[in-house]
Amino acid sequence: MILTLFAVCALTFFLMNVIPGGTAELVLKHTLVGLEDSVSKEQVNQISSRYNLDDPLYIQFFRWIKEAIVTGDIGTSYVFKKPVLYLLALRLPATIQLAGVSMVIAILAGVSMGIYSALKENRISDHILRIVTLFGVSMPGFWVALLLILIFSLKLKLAPVAGYGSLENLFLPAAALSLHSVAAVMRVTRISMLETLGQEYIRFAKAKGLPLWKIVSRHALKNAMLPVITVIGFQMGSLLGGAVVIEKIFAWPGIGSLLVDSISARDLPVVQGCVLAIVTMFLFVHFLVDMLYTHLDPRIRYG
């Protein structure tokens, strides 16, 4: 896990420096919006030396790592002149709220629709659900977001176009963000459920005279959930990735929009911090998934 974090940090760091354009110059231009042409050579040099941007990359990188480990300080924003940790603490709750709500929607809606679809295998309701979710997994999140804004905000005037704070602000971004995950979770649940329902222990449970709902909830669900949980773990990753774009579209003050802004401003410490935060959350979710696995399947626990 530590190794993964290190590798991700190194990769972001070097990739950010490979992007064309001098960091110092762009940072400066970004802070002086409207006066970009007035940026002088001296000012650029001044910035460069203040943030040690002229040092070789690996020295910059290891200086950052050392700082991060020894003092817990992961840098100061070039643009906002504030510690990155402070910015993250400011923005993270919004992202966790959005991603968390989307995840809950994805799990609840995806799993229940998947079970329903499996029980109605090859009937009309199953086909309709499958076609709808096929759209769900195929459509890119940003496009869904724009469509939702167009329909629900501009035409029907049911929800605000953008913003943050109240529940109705959450509605559209969460819907746009979770649609893909709902569809993915539903499809996996359906297939996994169908496979489980064909197992011999399901037949034996029927022979015991158990009613269908008990067979599904007690015998099938736990077994069918194993692959679904894996997919939910991966979906969490794509949710965090999708949040970057969705937050930008809905002006959601989360870590995603911070990341996008910092990339264009070449605010390296902030980019680094955002990526670090996202990856940490992702790894944490995967850790949870592994724990859940062993909890659900006794064969893994004792095997």
Binding site: E200, A207, G209
Partner: peptide, 24 residues
């Protein structure tokens, strides 16, 4: 039918390994 299945006729399935639910 469920009443018959649960009360009057019981099935001892082939392959006991598959007939037992692994997670319960």
């Amino acid at each position: 039918l469920r009443k018959i299945r649960g009360k009057c006729i019981s099935l001892m399935p082939q392959n006991p390994a598959g007939a037992l639910n692994p997670v319960l």
